[in-house]
């Protein structure tokens, strides 16, 4: 999983791809209209692929609806990602400050950890000795 910033960038790229796909869908599957009653729609030639692949109105409507929904969903994802970007309230100085503090705390904690490990080892040795002497008995 990548960080949120990369996720956001990918989401934006996907939004762009969806734009293109949506545009292509409408461009490809719309129906043809006449400007005046006298106009006629020329039948497409048999040896050429048709310019538009008109879908039945209800199918076309449904497709449009689905694509629009997808767009809105993607947009919502993007906005969610934007609002969850980390550390928008921190300035650079705040960040550097907290990094320094964390570093010191880490040093202290590491020392404490080593002490605890040493202590544990000592107790372990004692326990081991005791157990050994009992077993021998």
């Amino acid at each position: 999983m990548s960080d949120r910033l990369s996720q956001l960038q990918e989401a934006v790229d996907q939004l762009m791809e969806q734009f293109i796909a949506t545009y292509f869908y409408i461009d490809r599957h719309h129906d043809l209209k006449t400007f005046s009653p006298k106009d006629t729609i020329a039948p497409s030639k048999a040896d050429q692929p048709p310019e538009v692949d008109t879908l039945p109105p209800d199918v076309f409507q449904a497709g449009q609806l689905e694509l629009a929904r997808d767009l809105i969903t993607r947009e919502q994802q993007i906005e969610y990602l934007i609002s969850s970007l980390p550390g928008l309230d921190n300035s650079e100085q705040d960040q550097l400050q907290s990094i320094k503090e964390l570093e010191e705390e880490l040093n202290v904690a590491e020392k404490q950890r080593q002490e605890a490990v040493k202590e544990k080892d000592e107790v372990l040795v004692k326990l081991d000795q005791t157990l050994r002497s009992i077993r021998r008995y």
């Binding site: 960080d3 980390p86 650079e92 960040q95 990094i99 570093e103």
Partner: peptide, 11 residues
């Protein structure tokens, strides 16, 4: 900015 933020989180 985000890189620094991530460093803070890791620490």
């Amino acid at each position: 900015h985000q890189a620094r933020e991530q460093l803070i989180q890791l620490m």
